[in-house]
Computed example of a mutant assay.
Amino acid sequence: MNRLITLLMLLIASMSAAAAPPPPADIDARAGFDQHVGAALPMSARIVDQDGEARTLAGIAHGKPLVLAFGYYRCPNLCDLTLHGIGRAVSTMTLDAASDFHVVFLSVDPDETAAAAREARTMLAGMRPGARAATWTFGTADAATIASLTRVAGFRYFLDERTKEYVHPAGLIVVTPEGRIAQYFFGVGYDAGALRLALVDASNGRLGGVIDRLVLLCCGYDPTTGRYSVLVSRLMMVLGSLFVLGMLVAIGRLRRRTA
């Protein structure tokens, strides 16, 4: 009986796949992420959060870096994976999602409601309690606001009229407290260590410690991969500085002994 049920499920899945229309031929030109590092997001843009409250991005950031992601709540594919990917990374970081930075997920569908945003927050909070999704902002906005934010962010998407679904890329953006785009992370899985460094870097010295500063001195952000990588020149500069400092300390101690 179990085998029969399995065969029936496979048959239904194959029929659904066969019935699904092929993707548009120009999908790469119409959907994707263009990196606009350094661009200024309109932080005065008003969005409506999951509780129906109108808020600005500046008010949400409240002087802290933002983790910003675009998608939509009825998305059948990437958006759940994106949210879980952010939740997984946030739950394993030492930074706090309520006091050190803020997470914003904004729907690109102007017809979606605060109720849909609230349902997404409840779902993620229940499945990933460590991510503290109850402190995130799940937002909706009108078409003009969505267009202005996604245009600056380089987030290209479109509504496929055949399926009535939005075709869009997956990823997140780290934004400075002032609204400057600092870094991009692509896909649906995000390295917690790299995301932490990005937030420390975007905080203008307000987050992190001495070790974070040393790591950032030795590493550079690679926009092609959305990750940090060791820069040999910076590493040699830091090691050289530490060597000179060590020599000065040794000379100072030697002079005190011989005095």
Results as ranks from 00 to 15, higher is better:
3 R>L: 08
3 R>K: 07
7 L>Y: 02
8 L>V: 13
9 M>G: 00
9 M>W: 12
18 A>Y: 14
18 A>I: 05
21 P>E: 00
21 P>D: 09
22 P>C: 00
25 A>E: 14
33 F>D: 08
33 F>C: 06
35 Q>T: 15
38 G>S: 04
41 L>K: 04
41 L>E: 06
43 M>S: 04
45 A>L: 03
45 A>F: 07
47 I>D: 05
52 G>F: 03
54 A>K: 10
56 T>M: 04
57 L>K: 02
57 L>R: 02
58 A>G: 13
60 I>G: 11
61 A>M: 06
62 H>W: 02
62 H>L: 07
63 G>M: 05
74 R>G: 08
75 C>W: 00
75 C>E: 03
77 N>H: 11
79 C>G: 10
80 D>N: 14
81 L>R: 15
82 T>F: 07
84 H>R: 15
87 G>W: 01
88 R>G: 11
89 A>R: 00
95 L>M: 05
96 D>P: 07
100 D>P: 08
101 F>L: 12
101 F>E: 01
104 V>L: 06
105 F>E: 10
106 L>G: 11
107 S>W: 10
107 S>I: 08
109 D>Y: 04
110 P>V: 03
111 D>R: 13
113 T>I: 09
114 A>E: 12
117 A>G: 12
118 R>I: 05
120 A>R: 10
126 G>F: 07
130 G>P: 13
131 A>K: 01
133 A>W: 03
133 A>F: 02
136 W>L: 09
137 T>P: 09
139 G>S: 09
140 T>A: 08
141 A>R: 04
145 T>Q: 02
146 I>E: 05
149 L>F: 06
151 R>W: 03
152 V>H: 02
153 A>N: 07
154 G>Q: 06
159 L>C: 06
159 L>E: 07
160 D>A: 00
161 E>I: 05
162 R>F: 02
166 Y>F: 13
167 V>E: 01
167 V>S: 05
169 P>M: 09
170 A>F: 02
174 V>M: 04
174 V>D: 06
175 V>P: 05
175 V>M: 06
176 T>K: 11
177 P>I: 07
179 G>E: 09
190 Y>H: 13
190 Y>V: 12
191 D>M: 02
191 D>L: 03
197 L>N: 05
197 L>E: 10
200 V>Y: 01
200 V>D: 04
203 S>C: 09
203 S>F: 09
204 N>Y: 13
204 N>G: 08
204 N>I: 00
204 N>V: 01
204 N>S: 15
205 G>L: 11
210 V>A: 14
211 I>T: 06
213 R>W: 02
215 V>K: 11
215 V>R: 13
216 L>A: 13
218 C>R: 14
220 G>F: 00
222 D>Q: 06
224 T>D: 15
231 L>W: 03
233 S>P: 00
233 S>E: 15
234 R>C: 07
240 G>L: 13
240 G>M: 12
241 S>K: 00
241 S>N: 05
245 L>F: 12
249 V>E: 11
250 A>C: 03
252 G>Q: 03
259 A>Q: 14
